[in-house]
């Protein structure tokens, strides 16, 4: 190693560190001990390095920075705790809603019950509906309904057979086709509509319903419900029970 190489190596030498343990630096330092010129250069270099190191380490640190970092950390921790608490609270609320919803779901009636069917069909009658086929010809109605895969072989009481038929429509309920037949009755002008809904009995949970009509008021309409030969019949109209009974 010559003097130039030693200088080059010693440029990265930092006095007071374990740099001296590096074999190359150790060799260069050994050469400096024998070479007065290199020794002078090294002394100047060492002094410079120490001065620069001291200067860098004298960069003034703003007073209060340490405390500021501490308070930032405390705020961060508080935010973390609040976030965690909120997450726990949100989870608790979710569980609570779930717990409340289960009994509610249990208490709410299944959608395929007779009651729901009755309310739904009377709603159709009251809200307005579109007649799919306007005719007073019963065989034509049966044919139309059969084509639409809706119940067509329903049985009508004598009174209904004599009543004036307006037409029919096909409704859907719980994926089942419902035949709707509309009648005009010779009553007062504001109470002369009758609607007969027929659906396969299997589509509705009919409970204790029998072939004997059950009369009740639904959506301000008087209704009668019965089952016969695997079909559920729902007859509804304006007026009262006395108006309806003759058609059963």
């Amino acid at each position: 190693m010559n003097q130039a190489e030693a200088r080059s190596i010693l440029q990265l030498y930092r006095p007071g560190t374990d740099n001296a343990n590096d074999p190359q630096i150790a060799e260069a330092l050994a050469l400096a001990r024998q070479d007065p010129e290199l020794a002078r250069w090294l002394e100047a270099h060492r002094t410079r390095q120490l001065a620069l190191r001291d200067t860098f380490r004298q960069i003034p640190v703003p007073p209060g920075l340490k405390e500021q970092i501490g308070s930032e950390q405390a705020a961060f921790q508080r935010a973390k705790v609040i976030k965690r608490r909120f997450a726990v609270f949100a989870a608790a609320v979710s569980v609570l809603i779930l717990l409340l919803e289960i009994p509610w779901q249990r208490s709410s009636p299944p959608e395929d019950t007779l009651e729901v069917f009755q309310h739904s069909m009377m709603g159709v009658a009251l809200r307005g509906y579109g007649i799919d086929l306007t005719t007073n010809d019963l065989p034509q109605i049966r044919s139309f309904l059969a084509k639409k895969l809706a119940p067509a072989d329903f049985q009508l009481s004598d009174a209904l057979q004599r009543a004036n038929i307006n037409g029919c429509a096909v409704e859907t309920w719980q994926n089942a086709k419902v035949s709707m037949v509309c009648f005009h009755t010779p009553q007062t002008a504001d109470r002369n509509n009758l609607w007969l809904f027929v659906v396969d009995q299997g589509a509705v949970k009919t409970g204790n319903l029998t072939s004997s009509p059950t009369v009740q008021t639904i959506h301000r309409l008087i209704t009668a419900t019965w089952i016969k030969d695997g079909k559920l019949y729902l007859l509804g109209g304006e007026g009262n029970e006395a108006d309806l009974r003759p058609y059963l």
Partner: peptide
């Protein structure tokens, strides 16, 4: 923080 805030700041300032 006590050990490193000052040298970190000094490095950042550099």
């Amino acid at each position: 923080v006590a050990n490193y805030y000052a040298p970190l700041y000094q490095f950042a300032f550099s």
